[in-house]
């Protein structure tokens, strides 16, 4: 991947695409640390509904966020077929529960279209844009706005 990316134009970047239900989303590959299977999480008391709990990632305590629920869609029912995308957001590492990872995309900024005007405010604040790839619509989401910096300091 890295070898190919060297040959690409400077503004090209790679995205990881994944599925939640029928919809496809993607995030910048640079923020993804690893992808692993679902393991049961330890529930946290008084946590928001989309925080499924914490798991042990080689000794680190990793919070798991149900991305579907976080994006305002229906809550997932995690199973062994679900996938956790381990991503770094600012200084923290979080696990994002998604249905499946589908693709790695190489795009330039030209490919990214602005988010269309839709009614769901929640979706729009997270969506940085949409991509049309082989007839599919993939929504680029910004992890930084899902987990704003400093939220833990406020707690």
């Amino acid at each position: 991947m890295h070898q190919t990316s060297k040959n690409l134009a400077e503004d090209a970047r790679e995205l990881i695409a994944f599925r939640i239900g029928e919809q496809e989303f993607c995030v910048d590959i640079m923020s993804v640390r690893e992808i692993r299977g679902w393991t049961p999480a330890t529930a946290l008391p008084h946590s928001p509904g989309y925080v499924l709990g914490v798991i042990n990632l080689r000794g680190a305590v990793l919070p798991i966020v149900d991305l579907s629920s976080r994006l305002g869609m229906k809550e997932s029912d995690p199973s062994a077929r679900h996938v956790i995308i381990v991503a770094q957001v600012y200084q923290k590492v979080v696990g994002l529960l998604v249905d499946a990872v589908s693709d790695i995309l190489t795009v330039t900024d030209d490919n990214i279209q602005p988010t269309p005007e839709v009614s769901s405010e929640l979706d729009r604040s997270f969506a940085k844009g949409v991509l049309a790839i082989e007839g599919r619509m993939i929504c680029l989401i910004e992890l930084e706005s899902i987990f704003p910096e400093g939220e833990s300091e406020a707690a």
């Binding site: 049961p40 999480a41 330890t42 946290l44 008391p45 008084h46 946590s47 925080v51 709990g53 914490v54 798991i55 042990n56 000794g59 680190a60 305590v61 990793l62 919070p63 923290k92 590492v93 979080v94 939220e151 833990s152 707690a155």
Partner: peptide, 20 residues
């Protein structure tokens, strides 16, 4: 480190079965 302060919980640990 990766999450936030949780009221009523001091910290976490990992048990023998790998569970938090």
């Amino acid at each position: 480190a990766n999450y936030a302060n949780v009221p009523g919980i001091a910290a976490a640990t990992i048990l023998g079965d790998g569970q938090v």
